[in-house]
Write a protein that binds this DNA or RNA. Structure first.
Length: 114
DNA sequence: CCCTTGACTATCT
DNA sequence: GAGATAGCCAAGG
């Protein structure tokens, strides 16, 4: 196994582990934060290579939908794990729960759904 | 090497 | 907003 790939994996795992409970991050965001811009597609591989427990389900696509095929087992599992943390879904999209500053829960729930 | 694959993304119709 | 399209980049055949 190559040395550089291990370093990459480690950086990704560390970043993903840092995602807080009930929050999500996109693949591209994780890659960027880990120090590897434009490696969004590689993030998934790094996660699948992870042996320990990783909050992989807190990583979603940039449009806030899940990466798996709708209806697949993986899709259901990820959605279930997220909902267990209080994450909501509207029209297949994760609702950002930035409880910290987004005091506009009203607008969040009743505002335009796009 | 060349070509194909993806748990991706940004942009344009 | 849904589809198409073109970048993206490491792995594997």
């Amino acid at each position: 196994m190559s040395e550089s790939r291990f370093k990459f994996d480690k950086a990704i795992w560390k970043t993903v582990s840092g995602i807080k409970h009930g929050r999500v991050m996109s693949y591209g965001q994780v890659a960027r934060l880990a120090g590897y811009p434009r490696h969004a597609r590689m993030v998934s591989k790094a996660m699948s290579r992870s042996t320990g427990s990783l909050p992989w389900y807190r990583v979603v696509k940039s449009d806030r939908t899940l990466a798996f095929e709708v209806g697949s087992e993986a899709y259901s599992k990820q959605k279930e794990l997220l909902e267990k943390e209080g994450v909501r879904f509207i029209a297949g999209k994760v609702v950002p729960l930035d409880v910290d500053e987004a005091v506009d829960l009203d607008k969040l729930l009743w505002g335009p759904l796009e």
